[in-house]
Amino acid sequence: MENFFTLTGVAIFALMLPILYRIIVGPTAIDRIVAVNMIGTKTMVLLIIIGMLFKRVDMFVDFALTYALLNFIGSLAAARFFDRVNPEKQIAKLETKEQES
């Protein structure tokens, strides 16, 4: 069972690499924010797996909870940062562009 958890942790770490590609290449800033949010979720799962390996889940589960809260608040704050342009105007512009094409 230990080996299984180790392999799961390695697999989750390997799954972070494609998302890292999106962070490096990602054409706009908000793509990068989404990718960072996804990596944060995976890190939270990884923390619980590390706790399983060290047999101290009671301690690591608190870290994971804090990490999940910080990840959520961080993505909300980053989204708030982009909330400067007039929303109604932008949505109207997008829809007219779509009808024309």
Partner: peptide
């Protein structure tokens, strides 16, 4: 909730909808 927030931020920033 964070999906709504981020996709709303994308709309406000003026991301193009790929068709």
């Amino acid at each position: 909730t964070s999906t709504h927030a981020l996709i709303k931020a994308g709309i406000d920033e003026g991301q193009k909808v790929w068709t």
